[in-house]
Design a protein around this nucleic acid. Structure first.
Lengths: 170, 170
DNA sequence: TTCCCACATGTGATTTTATAACATTTCGAG
DNA sequence: CTCGAAATGTTATAAAATCACATGTGGGAA
């Protein structure tokens, strides 16, 4: 069974990254932005891809591929695993979504369009995920890589812990 | 420690794992160190746990739980998944091994005993894995976490790229 | 010593995550 | 319109991880 914790959309406790916001507008503008960028770059923003991104944006948390499939089914789409994985591949490849390796789950990108190296903060209590930018090449890791002659192509940076909202309610 | 393999690189670059070294000695001393620490801390370094750590050390790269099971079987141990996962849980929990989230695989810890926050460099060509120390709380991520009121408990830092040996042979 | 109990292991089944393989459809360039 | 590449539909299976419960084991308390 996939865990879809209820999304109470009234959590106004705010802090950077975990801030409450006008979620409907956020979803709409992100979709519009994605559509624009796909048009500009000649990418095909097909119905499945759009729906998957929309679902990720709506959830606003890490969601597993199979939970996503359930949502796709509800929305009338085909719901075989490859459908979700292909859409997620497309979205990840073009920076509209990211995989959270620690959770084997996916989130919509919080900085669409920006070329960035994402870092994530994952709340182990509510599964909320905040995306920050990271600069791995500038820190200890970058120094180690240069020392070792290792060429970094991609980084996974994920912090697991407790978000401010959950810290208040033990 | 005398080096069996001639190398132009220093063997003691402990933050760098792509260097050649005396592997038999490395395995032996790591096992001895683990045994010592378990004795000191009242941990039970059972045959399965010891064997799993030995196999990880021998492999000296990321290895999946099921590949490990095959090796366990060859060594005469029971080879049902929980056997491997329980041993890996124990080893991870006490810092003798780490999980590479990006690969769903495991490596022996390169800095046994040291309390540390590991960062990994993963060669996408040869699967070699080097472990470096990281200081995520001090970089961009730490700053973002503090700004957000997020309490970091654990971090995953993994860089994927090309190791020096593979870079030379395209 | 014996009993107990927490911890560790053995084992079969199942769940969760991801991909392979191949047929069919769709879209847009020419 | 036609062709070919890209996308999707579908079945099956691989790969990773956990559950559930029985059994063994080892060290401390009575």
């Amino acid at each position: 069974m996939t865990s879809l914790k209820p999304t109470t959309e009234s959590d106004d406790a705010s802090s950077v990254g975990f801030t409450a916001h006008d979620h409907a507008a956020c979803v709409g503008s992100a979709l519009a932005a994605a559509e624009d960028r796909c048009a500009q770059e000649g990418l095909r923003f097909t119905p499945v891809r759009r729906k998957v991104l929309e679902l990720l944006l709506r959830e606003h948390r890490a969601i597993g591929a199979y939970a996503l499939l359930d949502l796709l089914r509800e929305a009338g789409f085909s719901s075989q695993p490859p459908v979700a994985y292909r859409a997620l591949d497309f979205l990840s490849e073009h920076g509209f979504a990211h995989k959270i390796e620690r959770l084997n789950a996916f989130v919509a990108c919080a900085h669409p369009g920006a070329s960035h190296t994402p870092a994530f903060m994952i709340c182990r209590k509510c599964d909320a995920v905040a995306e920050a930018r990271s600069t791995p090449a500038k820190g200890t890791l970058g120094a180690a890589a240069r020392a070792a002659g290792f060429q970094i192509e991609r980084t996974v940076v994920e912090a697991e812990g407790v978000c401010p909202a959950c810290a208040e309610v033990p």
